[in-house]
Design a protein around this nucleic acid. Structure first.
Lengths: 343, 343
DNA sequence: TGTTAGCACTCAGGGAAAGAGAGTGCTAAC
DNA sequence: GTTAGCACTCTCTTTCCCTGAGTGCTAACA
């Protein structure tokens, strides 16, 4: 693809991103100074269409980028847009504001991103986060219930209120707690499998009928809590996008965003384990409901291992340059902040 | 209003609720057997319109209920609809499934209601919930952070990860924890004001520079956590309502539902402190964005005091009979379940 | 006096027709 | 290889007309 074709493609995509309307040859000569006449542009456009980079909604309309066109743009033409000082400051302030609890932190992060981009932000924390168990407590709430609390070095707090099946056991709680602490505090979360728990219970030599209760208890506490490991922000921004004037499209998209499982699947499919940033365009994602969307996903890492994914979902006609810069910055800061946390 | 007028109004409202289309005189004679001709119905309708119970979108259309009409219907004509056995069972099962943590419980409750009604459910837990402090713990996470955990008799678990301004203090934590427990465990949450905390700190005779830190710590822990005291469910159901085919209306409504503060305001304005169930119709609520909606709010009580509000937001054309029955049932069960919890 | 049939009238919604405008593709000249 | 000119295509908008639903009014009826 020669230089001028690239400039034409760039112009078409940039204009379409800005105005959401098919771009004609005259528009290009007027707004983007390529030094040639509309007729020449038309020839180039005709070529670009033959090669599949752009398409025509109908004969008498301008051209719009195709998925292939966007792909080429993202891979070769796109300029990263420098973040404004104000934005940088906002991100830094946010990171410094303390990520006390993962929950609030991620929710707030999604909100910040959605406000900055005017798109929708989605995030997921992986199933079992890395980190060591820092503390494990069993707090009796009343005769029938116990609150188990798990603290990890990555700043994750997990608690679960569990029902005790029999009153008798509550008397043995302090002892149980002590033993569990001895056994588990300090170990890597990832090392605590169901098998390990079974062994542990054996070692503890508990009364038989209590064994499975305790295992259940711990498993539930350690179990990844599906529900709150997926976050979204700025879903409503989609309402302002002209491509979602159509209620049925909205429905499809929103029903997707409403289901944590499908959001997680989306993030997983859109970003390889070890990539920092992935841009997925339109139909490239094999997930129902996001055909007209693009997704910019960033992974952040702690100790070289992926600690989570966070992404921006917008119309295919999204402002890639801005979004990519922003997400690179955010991922970097997240990695830094979370690693700092570890120490 | 005579008997026949009531029947006509009922017919109009029931039909409009079912079909979302203006109701004509012929439709009424055909579908609702009133034993009179369309012409007679027309006369009645003309009267009803003069009195403001119904209105005409345009000359050649049927009639639709006005806010006043709905109000009369809800107050005098509406039949409560018996819940199906399946629904009752679902509710009971849900209540029995354990309200381990308020958060998940309320979220799940909203989801259940929205599934049952196909409308949107909103809920709020009041600022400072009733109940006694059952346990208060300060768990050191690392040198710089402490996790404060507060357990209340109403089953509420609140935790907050707090930064310690200086390392020195962390050594004094166990002592502090012990003293705070002695002083606070057992007291009513509502009795713990900022003033009380100040007194308490005085009594504890802490080193001066630690005093305000501890107060801050406790205040933050006790402080109502705005963010997660408001819940919504089934927001997307609104997309299926014909009255929200219009994107701009949707935007107004969704932006309201997106802001916890405004949702809380809505619930508060829509239900008097001591009422069990309140139906608010259309413009009756002085809140931007819900002009085309009605709201059925139920309060539930623990120890005679309001423990929270939960409501259904739907189009003015909502199925009041069904919704009211459902919410009465839910509120009753909530009151029962939460009171049971106390013991 | 209340009810009904008949009829003229009104108005939204849908479809067809016409015109405007945007944009292209092709041809021929530069 | 580039450009001007021009015919052509197709959408979008506006206008017009027609249809159908539903009303309100009047006069007759019980």
């Amino acid at each position: 693809m020669d230089e001028r074709k690239k400039r034409v493609l760039s112009a078409i995509i940039n204009d379409y991103i800005a105005n959401a309307e098919p771009v004609g040859s005259r528009t290009i000569t007027k707004k983007y100074d390529l030094g040639v006449s509309p007729a020449t542009i038309r020839n180039e456009m005709s070529d670009l269409e033959d090669e599949g980079y752009i398409e025509q909604p109908h004969t008498s309309a301008g051209r719009i980028p195709s998925a292939k066109g966007y792909r080429y743009y993202v891979d070769h033409l796109m300029r990263r847009e420098r973040l404004s000082a104000a934005q940088l400051r906002q991100i830094r302030e946010f990171m410094a504001s303390g990520l006390s609890e993962m929950d609030h932190f991620m929710r707030a992060c999604c909100n910040m991103i959605s406000r900055m981009t005017n798109y929708t932000a989605i995030a997921a924390i992986p199933e079992r986060s890395s980190g060591r168990i820092v503390n494990l407590q069993l707090l009796p709430v009343n005769e029938r219930q116990v609150l188990t609390i798990l603290l990890t070095s990555s700043g994750l707090v997990r608690y679960k209120l569990l029902d005790l099946p029999s009153l008798a056991e509550s008397r043995e709680l302090p002892l149980l707690e002590q033993r569990l602490q001895q056994a588990l505090v300090g170990s890597e979360l990832s090392a605590v499998s169901t098998e390990r728990l079974h062994e542990l219970i054996q070692e503890l030599q508990l009364r038989e009928r209590m064994q499975e209760q305790v295992i259940g208890l711990l498993e539930q506490t350690l179990a990844p809590e599906e529900s709150r490991r997926v976050f979204t922000g700025g879903v409503m921004n989609m309402l302002s996008q002209p491509e979602f004037r159509d209620i049925d499209k909205l429905k499809g998209l929103f029903s997707l965003l409403d289901e944590d499982g499908r959001v997680k699947e989306l993030l997983a499919k859109a970003s390889p384990e070890d990539s920092v940033l992935t841009v997925t365009i339109g139909g490239e994602i094999p997930v129902e409901g996001v055909q007209d969307c693009s997704l910019v996903v960033a992974n952040y890492f702690v100790d070289g291992e992926r600690a989570g994914s966070i992404g921006v979902l917008g119309p295919t006609r999204m402002s890639y340059g801005r979004t990519v810069s922003l997400m690179e910055q955010i991922a970097a800061e997240l990695s830094r902040t979370m690693s700092g946390k570890e120490k």
